[in-house]
Amino acid sequence: MSVVLVHEGPSFTRERYDEIVRRLAGRSRMESVADWPVEGLLVHIASEGERGFRVVDVWESEDACRRFAEKLKPILEEVGVDEPARLYPPHAFVSA
């Protein structure tokens, strides 16, 4: 079953997001799900939010999301993002 990951907060800024991407991908942008370090990403959205920068991901399974979290967590700590991400079960998911 797919899961929705939401990550946002005051310590999560656009600059920190860009640095996280550089560390994960080795370049300034990830433009395809193939650019992610683990398989299973269905959707990734990054934007300014009301409480800081916001990332919303949809993963094909909680297991895929956790594999990604294992790679992401040390980078978040290094760049100073303090807020934990939250996982939600989707009520509905429609894609093109």
Rank of each mutant, 00 (worst) to 15 (best):
S2E: 10
S2D: 10
S2V: 12
S2R: 12
V6N: 04
E8F: 09
P10G: 11
T13G: 07
R14L: 14
R14C: 13
E15S: 13
R16K: 15
D18A: 15
E19K: 11
I20L: 10
I20N: 02
V21L: 03
R22W: 03
R22K: 12
R23D: 03
R23Q: 12
R23Y: 06
L24Q: 02
R29P: 02
S32M: 04
S32Q: 10
V33D: 09
D35P: 01
D35C: 07
W36A: 07
W36S: 02
E39W: 01
G40N: 03
L42N: 14
L42C: 11
L42I: 15
I45P: 00
A46M: 05
S47I: 01
S47H: 08
R51G: 06
G52Q: 04
F53N: 02
R54T: 14
V55C: 07
V56P: 04
E60W: 06
E60Y: 08
E62R: 14
E62N: 10
D63S: 10
A64C: 13
C65H: 13
C65V: 15
R66T: 12
F68Q: 00
L72S: 00
L72V: 08
L72M: 08
K73M: 13
K73L: 15
P74A: 02
I75A: 04
I75L: 12
E78H: 07
E78R: 11
V81D: 00
E83K: 04
P84T: 07
L87K: 07
L87D: 01
Y88K: 12
Y88T: 13
H91G: 10
A92C: 09
A92E: 11
V94I: 15
V94T: 09
A96C: 07
A96S: 09
